[in-house]
Design a protein around this nucleic acid. Sequence first.
DNA 1: TCCCATATATCCGCATTAGATATATCCACA
DNA 2: TGTGGATATATCTAATGCGGATATATGGGA
Lengths: 111, 111
Amino acid sequence: MSAQGPIRPAVFHILLALAEEDRHGLGIAEAIRVATDGSVIMGPGTLYRSLKEMARDGLIREVASPDQADDPRRRFYALTEEGLTAARAEAGRWARVVDVARNARVLPEST
Amino acid sequence: MSAQGPIRPAVFHILLALAEEDRHGLGIAEAIRVATDGSVIMGPGTLYRSLKEMARDGLIREVASPDQADDPRRRFYALTEEGLTAARAEAGRWARVVDVARNARVLPEST
DNA sequence: TCCCATATATCCGCATTAGATATATCCACA
DNA sequence: TGTGGATATATCTAATGCGGATATATGGGA
């Protein structure tokens, strides 16, 4: 049984980056930057601190590098079931807010 | 010329509440609570401070009460053009994040 | 009239984030 | 092979943002 309350934006962005594929720290930051067109830039403080807490809380777990010839300094992470559940719940909350924006004609119907 | 960078979640929620209709302070907080199914509860500290700053920055403006027989203590606010522009930009950023979630199968296709 | 709910407003402490700094080591290239 | 810049993780601190407590005033109904 896991808490289903809202999660911090930084944690949510990390969960989404890992939902795409397993990544290491800086790879996560880069994925977030690309996914948000540069509007979200996650510095190392927030990044590594969040990763440590998320692993402690069971939202992510460290996995072996997908490439044996990879830089051994890199630490790769994957979503856990609990992490995916949390990501789904938070994404639903975001989607609902986007719907509110559409209904208020702040966004076009589609997009 | 207005800044188009990301805005704080609290400010965004207020903009959306006012995009629906003109409201007074506590009416905004209530609209946010309802729109987010209770997952976003804005306390008075964040609420009134944000309103003051947003009016100062030209995102909203105070308007006359829509009802003459209304409680005179209420202060109603409306979106300005600049506020609507900022809301559109931020909603677009949120929609993009939701799309990322869909593409990563964190959310179902529709919703 | 008296009391409780509503309404605005401010203050303070906590949570969260951004940026600076530290340390190590990989890798390209001379 | 050895060396310098880039990459990578990690931590610390300062700034920012937010929630809740508190204050003040007043509307409205019993």
